[in-house]
Design a protein around this nucleic acid. Structure first.
Lengths: 138, 138
DNA sequence: CATTAAGCCTATATATTTTGTAGGTTTTGT
DNA sequence: ACAAAACCTACAAAATATATAGGCTTAATG
């Protein structure tokens, strides 16, 4: 399941996408609209900024704004940024690969192959669908 | 990601499937072969038993054994039993449905639809693939 | 140029979940 | 009767997720 962090990130991005013509938007505005703790959201927005999705302006009249087009933000990237791996096993993760500690031999692990399929089907969707699609559905 | 519990369950089931002609198999045998804590595995096997996958025999010469054919044990059921929902959001879970607390209106939640697709594609695989497939791959 | 309102940053606190342990009870073969 | 095994419930420890605190930096404005 997606963490709250990731869900909050989607809410914030959606909000910023919806009002992207209004310029910089306050953390506080988003946190109040969605009932998210201000400080928690602050951390999330900062991560999104560092990852290159958001820009910000400090000081009075400051706030956050999207610096990518919504159709350039695949859902997969947001999930990976905030939640980590999308795959169900570390040994089939593309971005967070590690061998499974319990598995003496990954090549002959029966689960491995199935989980590669699950990963691929999941990614087909999450890499194709973007913030744009979310915005259109709301 | 799958929890250790679920991974251990798969290891145990695979082991029991592999040696299903040998009758009851000790917890200890499985736990030693896979480096799993005896007591932790005990709890897992008990759950698998209560869910109808395993049988057991108490007392001397006792142990656990499969009571379903490996091809009657879809991976989805094991994951759900030990890990809970397969879906990425509670509001799209078939077996563990709850409305998302942050979402005022699920019908017009943009994520909802995408996550239904992810769930469906994932389930296509995890309901079709069974312990049998795992055994064949090892 | 002082004040104020905003984001930035790092550390810490709290809550929840996962993982593992303890210890006694029941059952069964010998 | 004894020993070996699963059964059961509760608890402990560790890890992770969620949330908070508090000072720092930046920028607009009267």
């Amino acid at each position: 399941m997606l963490s709250k962090k990731t869900k909050y990130a989607f809410h914030a991005l959606t909000y910023l996408g919806k009002y992207k013509d209004k310029g910089a938007i306050l953390i506080q505005e988003i946190s109040e609209k969605h009932g998210i703790s201000h400080k928690f959201l602050e951390n999330i927005l900062l991560e999104l900024k560092k990852a290159g999705f958001l820009g910000s302006k400090k000081g009075k009249g400051g706030g956050y704004y999207l610096i990518k087009e919504p159709n350039e933000i695949p859902l997969s990237r947001i999930i990976r940024l905030l939640d980590g791996p999308i795959a169900l096993l570390p040994c089939v993760s593309l971005n967070y690969y590690e061998p499974c500690e319990e598995c003496e031999n990954q090549a002959q692990c029966g689960l491995n192959r199935v989980m590669i399929r699950v990963r691929d089907e999941t990614l087909k969707i999450l890499e194709m669908k973007t913030l744009q699609d979310i915005l259109e559905n709301e």
